[in-house]
Amino acid sequence: MVCESWKAKLDNCLDGELPEEEMRGFDAHVRNCPSCSADALARVQMKRAIQVAGKRYAPSAEFRKRMQQKIAAKPQRSFGLGWTLAAAAAVILVVGTLTSAYLGTRSGRDQVFSEIADLHVATLASSSPVDVISTDRHTVKPWFQGKIPFAFNLPELQNTEFSLLGARMTYLDQTPGAHLIYDMRKHHISVFVFQERSLPAGLDDNSLSPKQLPFNLETWSQGGLRYFVIGDASAADIDSLAKLFKAAS
């Protein structure tokens, strides 16, 4: 009975598409089950065989050269320079992101943080950073209804230095979530909200040195949701916004 349930998931396991916990369970089972391990081995061999056989065709050097010339010669697209200041600031920061974050292998957590930083930067640099422009949390909250698979509360900002600029839907590795953009003394701060269960574990491990990201970032889990607050504002300011969110939830 146990075997049947594993065998049904065998392909998904070997494709690395099961949640970590199930993968571990699978591992433990296969170690002690000759039938499942034989099946797994056969499928791994099949995967390899397809991989080898599938890499069959290589373009000629001449064709590569031709394509390269074609692409290089073409004019580039026109673009909108939205939020220029933010983009310019981000450029300086992105050098840091690129040089530090991509050296060596990154853990799942570092990967998530780096993707969050990318989302933050890319959005600010976009010509249309927000899908809904609103300073009113009462407009933003219902806007997300039906767009993301969860609901969350936005904090009241009266008597704070923060103001809400707008919001957009976002994806972290295809997981839908909410992206809110705040302004604080000309600093832009992003708040991301995702469902905790769709993200890798270990995000609360705080051993990340702040130097590894060119931004200040705070993350926590609350009510099944994972929050990220990120921006080039000071750590204290990031923390104040985080506290407002924690209090609102």
């Binding site: 290089a72 073409k74 580039q76 673009f79 992105v94 992101t97 690129l98 990318d118 890319a122 640099a125």
Partner: peptide
Amino acid sequence: FFVGYGNKTLVGWFTLVCMPEESLPSESFE
């Protein structure tokens, strides 16, 4: 920025966003 780091999307994106149009390097899409 155009050193060969892993995150090509980001590099390409910044190539587009952060440079004036006439001086855009042709490497970005490439």
